[in-house]
């Protein structure tokens, strides 16, 4: 690989783009192929395959051996609501290798003091998500149970195809939320993707335990997702 190729690869990874690197094992030549870039012929089909599976491997094409390596963006968690559960989740997520960012327009909650060293923005989700859009490698966790704050990002996460969408709230709260999301144009199968009540059922009682249940559910969604359909 040449240094300019490595730089291109690292730039694409930093921009949260999926990238395939095709190495010709006979002559060592390399092609950097970011997602969305058209690749001709049988190589294109194999590239599409590894982008879907996320699994690197060697392939034979027209009598030549290639190694196709694939780099998917690291999973990220965006939390709507700087609440007590979020304080625990912000500590657990990096241990599991997940980036985490918090959005909450309520300045009393979204303070540096409560979230030292964490990426936190005290602003409305609709404004923040314009600058930092969601993507398929993002988990959206909405924990304010305030429709004014939670509904927009939940709807955006369903439209974007975030690999995980979770919302805190009792069954009653969620039933009302379902009605509002229907009015926003989401159908039943989309709304069914929302994890509610949020978190794996481990009998979590404290904010920290609920955070753990949420993180475990995110890991489950990420590892068991079907990259073909994005579900």
């Amino acid at each position: 690989m040449r240094i300019d190729e490595l730089t291109r690869l690292n730039e694409a990874r930093a921009a949260r783009k999926a990238v395939v690197v095709a190495t010709d094992l006979a002559d060592g030549s390399v092609r950097i192929l970011p997602e969305g870039e058209a690749v001709e012929g049988t190589l294109g089909e194999e590239v599409a395959k590894v982008l879907r599976s996320g699994k690197a491997g060697a392939v034979e094409l027209d009598g030549k051996s290639f190694f196709l390596n694939v780099y998917l963006p690291p999973p990220r968690i965006v939390v709507i609501g700087a609440v007590h559960i979020t304080q625990a989740l912000a500590r657990l997520a990096p241990v599991a290798g997940y980036d985490l960012a918090i959005i909450d327009p309520r300045t009393a909650f979204a303070t540096e003091e409560r979230f030292e060293g964490v990426a936190i923005v005290a602003d409305w989700p609709e404004d923040v998500l314009k600058q930092q859009p969601l993507d398929a490698y993002t988990a959206l966790v909405a924990v304010t149970h305030d429709p004014k704050i939670d509904d927009f990002p939940l709807s955006a996460a369903l439209k974007t195809g975030c690999f995980y969408v979770g919302a805190l709230g009792s069954r009653k709260t969620h039933a009302k939320r379902v009605e509002r999301l229907k009015q926003l144009g989401h159908d039943d199968s989309e709304i069914a993707r929302i994890a509610a009540p949020i978190g794996l059922d481990i009998g979590a009682a404290t904010p920290a335990e609920i955070a753990l249940a949420i993180l475990a559910q995110i890991v489950q969604s990420f590892r068991r997702r079907d990259l073909v359909t994005g579900r």
Binding site: L6, L9, A93, P94, G117, V118
Partner: peptide, 19 residues
Amino acid sequence: MTAPETLDPLKTAEQWKLA
């Protein structure tokens, strides 16, 4: 809250080469 860049071998490779 990302992993330290030094734990990313491809970033390390780029930095070393450019140095």
